[in-house]
Amino acid sequence: MIELKCHKGFGPKVEGEALVTSDDFSARYDLDRINGVFSRPAHKLHGQSYDGKILVFNTAKGGVASAWMLHEMKSRGITPKAIIFNAANTILVQGAALAGLPMVDRFEDGDVTALIQSGDHVTVDPEQGLVTITNRS
């Protein structure tokens, strides 16, 4: 078990499988939201499904539309379980707050996209500011 301390976020405590990239994230530019996959060819997760995953990115970028999109994705049940950033931007924070989607950022031990690996089983506890990797030590 590896414990990673971060800035406190919001949303309920969740656990699931991590999907990690050093790339950035925009719900508007990067996703096919109907099929739940990364659709922008230049994105490092192109072709992968995000449904039910705990997504780990460097930061968020792009347009403000993502603020509504997480709420819309959640209403159709095709959504990540939580989103983790090295540094969130305003839009994704606002969008996650509307959607009630757990979100945390700013890790004490450095680059979270290197600390967590795709396929890791992780628990995200936004209230405590704590992410736990349960399949490794």
Binding site: A67, T90, I91, Q94
Partner: peptide, 8 residues
């Protein structure tokens, strides 16, 4: 101003 998404 910050980037204020629609909800904000």
């Amino acid at each position: 101003s910050n980037f204020e998404g629609g909800p904000s």
